[in-house]
Design a protein around this nucleic acid. Structure first.
Lengths: 207, 207
DNA sequence: TGTACATCAGTGAACGCGCGTTCACTGATGTAC
DNA sequence: TGTACATCAGTGAACGCGCGTTCACTGATGTAC
């Protein structure tokens, strides 16, 4: 990954990207478990044997895709958490950011949704581990807010989990939206749901 | 399905069940898209060609599994909706029912979680349609509660959607729980989340 | 009840095919002097 | 800078294998009389 990379390494990186991109594209319409070495190399314009210079097998390629999928999600979460402003604007921005992310990086989001409960254990575990890290990150950010006064770690984790789950299922819903109108309805629903959660949060320490 | 079924039809039904059961078992560890005709018939003790007396192809078998998976989920939703009692007991019972359902019908629940965003369009659409029906059913039940006074249809649908999503993700979490202790933590978190949603609901019409 | 014919769930063999993986290879890139 | 050797990403052919699907069949069940 160093910038002092020889021509050979640079070419190898490029081939690897070619395989990952071809895989990602093919995975929009099928499962990782059903994806073949020959299929990916064909789509990437490489001979089948070449695959093994980059990955041990398909699961290995899958794990690499999880890593880059979640790297891009990390950017999203950060940008939501760094938002400032009142609760309403924060909710609007959050839903906007999710929608934009899904439309800008469809393939990665679809891959995550599909393989999160998919048939390849290593990949499932990689996704679960990363989502847990998100929830932690979100929990840490929540802890810094004044509204979190008096909340225990457990309570913060539970709230963070609720937000992460909501984010994931909203993203999945956007993914399936057949047209712009459906997208608008999903966004409206997601905003209301976040508002309801926000209300619950505000009154958590009342009763 | 009539009780006046000849021996021939009864045997055919039994073979069909054998295929469905074998498929369901194999699908605990892999995707529908990766499941083979030969694999299923082998597990069911039938010759490969026999498969075609029952299903057109694997997607067809998958759709049949969605139907029975959701029939069993329907029972669960009904039993939750028919609960009476205070909010706290209702929440406790809901989480209990979900946990019991997951441990009693693991294979069906896993199948739904896996194929909901899986690689077979027909199956994905069947699952989505059924989950929508659930949300409607839940919404209709919510509308009958005194707490729903003044709520618009849209608001009720949004709340029902939140509950259904929460149910699904809680079920998926139970599925992955490695031991009883993890199960207890998941249940505790789910209860708190439902309590928070319940609070939000109570104050929805305040502001 | 008995007989003759019809139905059809399940069989077993056969087909052509694409798969994952291996192997010795080639030739461009890298390195030592 | 030039030369001789080493490295190694990618090739193309080959392998054995299990796949989905078809087909003519068998024999138990169903039906008509």
């Amino acid at each position: 990954m160093s910038h002092t990379m020889g021509a050979r390494q640079a070419q190898k990186q490029q081939s690897r990207r070619g395989l990952l991109d071809a895989g990602l594209r093919l995975l929009e319409e099928q499962n990782l478990a059903g994806l073949g070495v020959r299929e990916v190399t064909r789509a990437a314009g490489m001979s089948p044997a070449g695959f093994y210079r980059h990955f041990r097998d398909m699961a290995d390629l899958g794990v690499a895709l999880v890593e880059e999928s979640l790297a891009s999600l990390h950017v999203l979460v950060r940008s939501v958490l760094e938002e400032r402003g009142g609760a309403e604007e924060l909710i609007d921005r959050t839903v906007e950011v999710i929608e934009r992310h899904v439309s800008g990086d469809r393939a990665h989001v679809r891959f995550l949704a599909r393989e999160r409960h998919g048939g390849v254990r290593q990949v499932r575990e990689a996704v679960a581990a990363e989502l847990d890290r998100f929830a932690e990150e979100v929990g840490a950010a929540l802890a810094l807010q004044p509204a979190a006064e008096g909340w225990s770690d457990e309570e913060l984790r539970m709230l963070a989990g609720l937000y992460v789950e909501h984010m994931v299922s909203t993203a999945a819903a956007f993914l399936e939206a057949p047209d712009a109108d459906a997208g608008r309805r999903i966004a409206a629903t997601a905003r209301m749901q976040l508002r309801l959660v926000s209300l619950g949060r505000r009154h958590w320490k009342d009763g």
